[in-house]
Design a protein around this nucleic acid. Sequence first.
DNA 1: TTATCATTCAAACGAACGTATGAATTAAAG
DNA 2: CTTTAATTCATACGTTCGTTTGAATGATAA
Lengths: 224, 224
Amino acid sequence: MLEVRAVDTRERILDASEKLFMANGFDGTSMRLITGAAGVNLAAVNYHFGSKESLMQEVFRRRLDWLNGERLRVLDEMERKSGGKPLKPSQIVDGFFGTLLRMAQDEAHGGITFLRLLGRTLTEPSDFIRTFLAKEYSEVMERYKAALFKALPDVPKAEIVWRFHFMLGATSYAIAGTDALRLVTDWQIEDADATDRLDRLLPRLMSFLLGGLRAPLPQFSATA
Amino acid sequence: MLEVRAVDTRERILDASEKLFMANGFDGTSMRLITGAAGVNLAAVNYHFGSKESLMQEVFRRRLDWLNGERLRVLDEMERKSGGKPLKPSQIVDGFFGTLLRMAQDEAHGGITFLRLLGRTLTEPSDFIRTFLAKEYSEVMERYKAALFKALPDVPKAEIVWRFHFMLGATSYAIAGTDALRLVTDWQIEDADATDRLDRLLPRLMSFLLGGLRAPLPQFSATA
DNA sequence: TTATCATTCAAACGAACGTATGAATTAAAG
DNA sequence: CTTTAATTCATACGTTCGTTTGAATGATAA
């Protein structure tokens, strides 16, 4: 089939890109850095992926296809079991965010590296990557929003959408910051390795997210 | 005094940089783009600021000095009034995050543009900017963490630090995304202008943050 | 007016960027 | 073994990058 070296090269490039884009961002990562780290020729990226932008998209597609597929599978399964009745908010939140964090514990799906890349990319919206992510996320977002609307019929939809947004933010930060940012603390607390911190992060994050999701509705001031 | 043109030029560069760094990131914004938008000569940035990195730091310093000064002033005032008794969590959260969002409504302090820049930068940690932000934030972080420890004596400190981190994330996203990201929704809901959305964002965000901060503590599984 | 000095300006520097090319290399197919 | 096509390779293209330079400009002070 003539593809033994090709597949290897593609994977090596994707793996190296994932790490480097995470560490330096898209603009901060050159083709020479990528191909150097991957141990392949400079021209290999353009040969296998066409361009740097296409490479970036492929880095995300490789992980997101699996992640969002899994999210939909989990949601389907929960809705099947519930037999038409609304799910509990904690189930929905776990299906979306728990699935993400559990993926990060699986090195076969990119581990924590991809998770950090995702977290940082969601706030660097280059046009081409925003367009790509919007398409990649559209189905799973619609499904999970619908599940939340059904689970919380008394909460205005706009409020749920905002709180979904807040949950995304808290999660991305928790991820991107597990050792990138040290604004909040110097992290002498809990000097365990990253994977171990991830074990404890999930229940911590879930408590926070559910507390926020179920918080009393805000009172808008009359002057607004 | 010979400084009339100089001051103008500096301000014009800082204003243009703030907008462009927000829209394109640090690496994605060239000196020629900045000086072109500011209507000044290409060499002006290096003359007035020394380098692109120093310019970036000055863009942040100009706003953060005011913001974090205000945060400390508000905290001092609250602690003075309380007379040694612990503050309420809602007061502390409002002092930190409310002050941030209220600053965004004041165009004289950068308005929503700087807020978005800050939100996006906190997840793009270039070495030089992370070091700079860590120093710029150290005092205000210590003071607010201490206030939360005192306000929530029964909650483990590590838990409070994590939740502070989650709150930062939710806030940054809420800001960065008010029209950057459209993953969650297409925002036909609430087609008001940005400033008006900001009015309603504060109570929404505060409810969410307080709900998360006061959520029941997580139960760690025994196998972790 | 003249001397002084901060600022602005046009122009250029070498380095690094993403991409393209055409020849070498490799492995499968006939 | 020969042919064929996929892949790798060294090299170079044109562009853009951040920064530097030295002369021109402008306002202040003597």
